[in-house]
Amino acid sequence: MTTRSTISLRVNDVTHRLCLDHRRTLLDALREDLGHTGPKKGCDQGQCGACTVLLDGRRVVSCLTLAVAAEGAEITTVEGLAADGELRPIQEAFVRLDGFQCGYCTSGQLCSAVGMLAERAAGWPSAVTADVSPDGPVAELDAAEVRERMSGNLCRCGAYPSIVHAILETAARDGVTG
């Protein structure tokens, strides 16, 4: 029985050839094989969001994504958010507004925020969106929307209020991109 496969993973605009155990999660492949230790393992069962990365622009918990299933996708980790070393607005806002303390959930919060802003711009409703009809208006991004949409990303230090401020400020200034 074959237990390993050689695949290509494209991470932060770089393609890597890897021979991986089929059980290897995308999170472990990023961390253990590629040295991208920005994504964190907080629970390894999709309950905390610390491992959140973007897969073709959509947020996924990389601990519940098998690496072999991510072949062919554009994977963006927290390390890929600051292109050319320049912090994105959402990263800058996190630093300035103190949107973290220990920082362990931060890479997940940031990737989740970027993915969430895109989802909302695409018209995806959340559980607190008043009008969820397909032709309804794009929900206004208020604090309640941000809190609902970000609730998959736990933070034990309790940086939530600062994270919400950082996201709202960034969205007001920079719209979708974060």
């Binding site: 920005g38 980790t77 927290v78 912090l87 996190f94 630093v95 300035r96 931060t106």
Partner: peptide
């Protein structure tokens, strides 16, 4: 802001 802020928001 925290001295290590940049390191924490870039995954470093």
């Amino acid at each position: 802001p925290r001295i290590e802020g940049r390191a924490k928001v870039t995954g470093a």
